[in-house]
């Protein structure tokens, strides 16, 4: 154990050191390659210009290499692999796509993903907005916000254990130690094995993600609510609007942009949901989603890169509109600078 800690610390320092060394050495090399002689102004300015041309690429180099190797190239490669067979060696045309359309599990995953998309972003945004409005009105609101925000720090796997314990079912005569079944029993209901209850089990998994993400929505929306100019609300009060009208007609329209950002952010997260399904059910009892199916096919029977790639591409296609919208927004912002 001690030796692992020592070697871990050693590796940590070495890894970071190598990185820092690159920037330092590359800068030194640049200065050596293009010296700036003090007695020759012409040569000096030429070399200074050369440095200015090369230096951005030295600074950007490692980042660009990482981006290209780990993100740009794989996106292209995955697209190409989707037309090849399981080993990636033989071209099979659209066979993998045809398989996907006819595969029951794939359809199930699409259906479940749509279910997740319909419920989770809406629920998180709604609860986040309600909690943001409520906590802004009380003196201990910040403490309450911290507590509701906290699950954001918890891993999906940890959250799954936490909620699996809540959904725990005990057969026989013993006491129910899962909170949900204990409550159901206290009200005279029949305890259930919640996570294998077809169709509804999806919602029990969604609750976990809602529990984690509501805090995120709350934080962002709370900041947006505070940015609403005081005068608009005062004007509405003078005109005799009640609290409900002020909320829906004055406040919500002013934060539509933020609501859209929160909604799309959670949408992207939902499309990639993996850990929760893996640890709670591993896709059994009709809870399979695309990310899990994709992972499954990556290793199932030695792995099928073609089918796996098709499933990944479906997720990619779903985020593409958001991606384009983001790029447009960013370009617009930079145009304004």
């Amino acid at each position: 154990m001690i030796s692992q800690i020592v070697s871990a610390v050693g590796v940590v320092i070495a890894g970071v050191f190598v990185c820092a060394l690159y920037y330092w050495l590359s800068d030194k090399a640049l200065q050596l390659a293009f010296p700036v002689p003090e007695d020759n102004v012409r040569a000096a300015s030429v070399n200074l210009n050369r440095r200015a041309v090369v230096r951005p690429w030295l600074f950007l180099g490692p980042a660009l290499i990482l981006l290209v190797v780990y993100l740009v190239y794989p996106v292209i490669a995955t697209f190409i692999l989707s037309f090849y067979d399981r080993s990636g060696g033989n071209f099979v045309g659209l066979a993998n796509y045809r398989w996907a359309i006819q595969d029951g599990q794939f359809r199930q995953s699409i259906f479940n993903n749509i279910l997740w998309l319909a419920v989770v972003p809406a629920a998180c945004t709604f609860f986040g907005l309600v909690i943001a409005v409520l906590t802004d009105r009380i003196w201990w609101g910040n403490i309450a916000k911290s507590l509701i925000f906290m699950p954001m720090a918890i891993s999906f796997v940890g959250a799954s254990v936490i909620w699996k314990f809540i959904y725990e079912y005990r057969g026989g005569n013993g006491a129910q130690i899962g909170l949900l079944n204990a409550i159901v029993e206290a009200f005279g209901g029949q305890p259930q094995v919640w996570i294998s209850l077809p169709f509804w089990n999806n919602f029990f998994l969604m609750i976990i993600l809602i529990w984690i993400q509501t805090g995120f929505a709350m934080v962002i929306l709370s900041a947006a609510l505070r940015g609403i100019p005081e005068e608009t609300i005062e004007a509405a009060v003078i005109d005799g609007a009640n609290g409900w009208q002020i909320f829906w007609k004055i406040m919500v329209p002013q934060i539509w942009g933020t609501i859209a950002v929160v909604w799309t952010t959670i949408t992207i997260l939902v499309l990639k949901v993996f850990d929760i399904v893996l640890t709670m059910t591993n896709g059994q009892w009709n809870t399979m989603v695309l990310a899990n199916l994709m992972f499954d096919w990556m290793f199932r029977g030695g792995g099928d890169s073609g089918r796996s790639a098709v499933i990944a591409l479906v997720i990619m296609a779903a985020v593409t509109p958001i991606m384009i919208w983001n790029i447009r927004q960013a370009n617009k912002e930079m145009g304004g600078h």
């Binding site: 996106v75 985020v319 930079m334």
Partner: peptide, 21 residues
């Protein structure tokens, strides 16, 4: 490059896994 970076923010991890593996 800036546009590329913004676009890559939302690329799902799943797209990278097979080729990287």
């Amino acid at each position: 490059i800036i546009a590329m970076v913004v676009g890559l923010i939302v690329v799902p991890l799943q797209m990278s896994l097979i080729p990287l593996l």
